[in-house]
Nucleic acid binder design. Structure first.
Lengths: 243, 243
DNA sequence: CGCTGAAGTAGACGATTGTCTGCAAAAATA
DNA sequence: TATTTTTGCAGACAATCGTCTACTTCAGCG
C-alpha cells in the first residue's frame, strides 16, 4: 500500500511557496494567474492543474500549510514562557496573587515573542489577514477556524496560569478570542510601519491588561481582592530594570 | 463663475454605484474590469476614463462617498441617544454614578442602532473591510483614516457622557479605537450569518463593558467607587422589562 | 445662434487569461 | 525489469482585459 508519501509532491510545494510570495503583493490568492504562478515557481503553467482543481483549492492548501507551521511554534513559545515562570513561587503569598503575577509576567513576554514571530513570517500574516475578508467564502471560513484555534490555545494557557477558578471558562474563551483577533489585526501595521512597533507593543499590552482587569473585576466581589487585581495588572513598570 | 455643480457628473455616480454593487462579490475594487463596470452601469466601457485615472481613483471616490454618507447618520444617531438619556437625572446621586448609568444606557442602544445601520448598508461595510486589507495601499490608508475618524467621534461621545474626568483623554481614545475596530470586524459575520446576530450583539456589548470596567478601574483608587463601577457596568439586565 | 469643452460612443491594438487535449519523462509498483 | 500512475511540458482555443485614437452628442454660455 502507498504508505509514506515523502511529503507533498515537490511541484505542489513549489507552487504553494510561489503563491505565498506573489499573494503578498496582490493580497488575493484568487487573483493569482495560473501562468504567473507557474512562472514564479519555475514550472509549466499547466502543472498547476495536476495538483489543484482551482485557486481556492490552492488557497486551502496554503492556509493549511501555514497554520501547521505557525501553531506549533506558538505553542512551544508559550510553554517556554510558562516554564521560565514557574520558579517565581516565593514565600507566603496567597495563591491567587501568585497567579496574577505569573500572568502579568507571561503576558508581556508572550506579546513580544508573538510579534517577533510576525516579523519573521510577515507573508503568512499579510495574506491571512487579506484572505480573512477576501473573495473566497471557503478561504474566509478556513481562516476564521484557524484563528479560533489560536484563541482556543490561548484560553488553555490562561487556564494553566491559574486564572480559571475566578474566571469562568466562557469568559476566558471570550477574552482570548478578543485578544487573538486584535493581535492579528495589528500585525499589518506592525509589519508595514517599523517606526510604530514600540507603540503597537505597548498598545497590545495595554489592551490585554484592560481586558483582564475588566473580566476579572466582574467576577470578584470583595474589595481587597479587587484592589489587588488593579494593583498588579493596572500599571506595568517601564520596560527597564527591576528594582 | 461655475458655481453650483449639480453634484457629481451623472455618469460618475453611476459608475460608483455600479462598483459598489460589483465589488460586494469580488471583494476587491482593483479587480473590477473597466468593461464589466461599464456594462453594470449601462455605459460605454471607455466612459470610465472620462472620470477616473484608474481603479484606485474610483476606489478613493467610492470610499469618500460612502464615508460621507455614513459618518453623519452615525453622529446623529448617537446624538439622539444622548438626548433621550438626558432626563435620567433623578435625585441626589453623585454625578459620577449618574454618568456611569447614562453610559450604560447609551452603550446598549448605540450598539443596536449601529448594527441596524450595518444591516441597512451591508455593501459599504463588506467592501470597506475587504479593502482595509486589500491590494491598494492608497485605499488601505484611506480606510484606516476613515475608521480613525469614527473612533474619534466615539471618543468625543464618551467625553460628552462625562467619563472624561476619571478617564484621561488618551485612554478614552484607545478604548474607542478598540471598540470601533472590533465592531467593524464583526459586521461581516453580522451580515452573513443572521442566526448569529443576537450572539454578536451580546458579544459586542460584553466587549464594551469589559473594556470600560478595565479602563476605569485602573484610574480609580478608592474601593467603594470601584465596586460602584463593577456594579453598574458588570452585569447588564436581561433585555426584557425594567422593574 | 454659434462656439467650446465635457461626456459618452465606437472600434481596434496587443497582451494576458483559463482551460482543454495530447504527449514525454519520471517514479512507483509489481 | 516491465508496467502503471503520477508529474510535468507544449501548443492551441476563445474570451477578456487595459488602453489608445477618433468621432458623435450634449450642455452651457457669450
Amino acid at each position: 500500500m502507498a504508505d509514506h508519501e515523502p511529503l507533498i509532491a515537490k511541484g505542489k510545494k513549489l507552487l504553494i511557496q510561489a503563491a505565498l510570495r506573489l499573494a503578498v503583493h496582490t493580497r488575493s490568492i484568487r487573483a493569482l494567474g495560473v501562468r504567473e504562478l507557474g512562472r514564479e515557481a519555475g514550472l509549466n503553467p499547466n502543472t498547476f492543474y495536476r495538483h489543484f482543481k482551482g485557486m481556492d483549492d490552492l488557497g486551502l492548501a496554503l492556509i493549511e500549510s501555514v497554520v501547521a507551521e505557525l501553531r506549533q511554534p506558538l505553542r512551544d513559545m508559550r510553554r517556554t514562557v510558562a516554564q521560565s515562570l514557574a520558579p517565581i513561587h516565593s514565600g507566603e503569598e496567597d495563591e491567587f496573587a501568585l497567579n496574577l503575577k505569573r500572568t502579568r509576567a507571561a503576558k508581556k513576554e508572550t506579546i513580544k515573542l508573538f510579534f517577533d514571530f510576525v516579523e519573521a513570517n510577515p507573508e503568512a500574516f499579510i495574506i491571512g489577514l487579506s484572505e480573512l475578508n477576501g473573495s473566497s467564502p471557503r478561504l474566509r471560513e478556513a481562516l476564521r477556524e484557524a484563528i479560533a484555534g489560536f484563541a482556543a490555545d490561548m484560553a488553555e494557557d490562561f487556564r494553566l496560569l491559574g486564572l480559571t477558578p475566578v474566571l469562568d471558562d466562557e469568559s476566558v474563551q471570550q477574552v482570548s478570542t478578543i485578544i487573538i483577533r486584535n493581535m492579528f489585526y495589528m500585525t499589518t501595521e506592525y509589519i508595514e510601519r517599523p517606526e510604530r512597533r514600540a507603540a503597537l507593543l505597548e498598545a497590545a499590552d495595554k489592551l490585554v491588561r484592560t481586558l483582564l482587569i475588566g473580566a476579572l473585576a466582574r467576577r470578584v466581589s470583595d474589595p481587597p481582592r479587587l484592589l489587588q487585581i488593579v494593583a498588579v495588572l493596572g500599571v506595568d513598570a517601564a520596560p527597564q530594570d527591576a528594582r
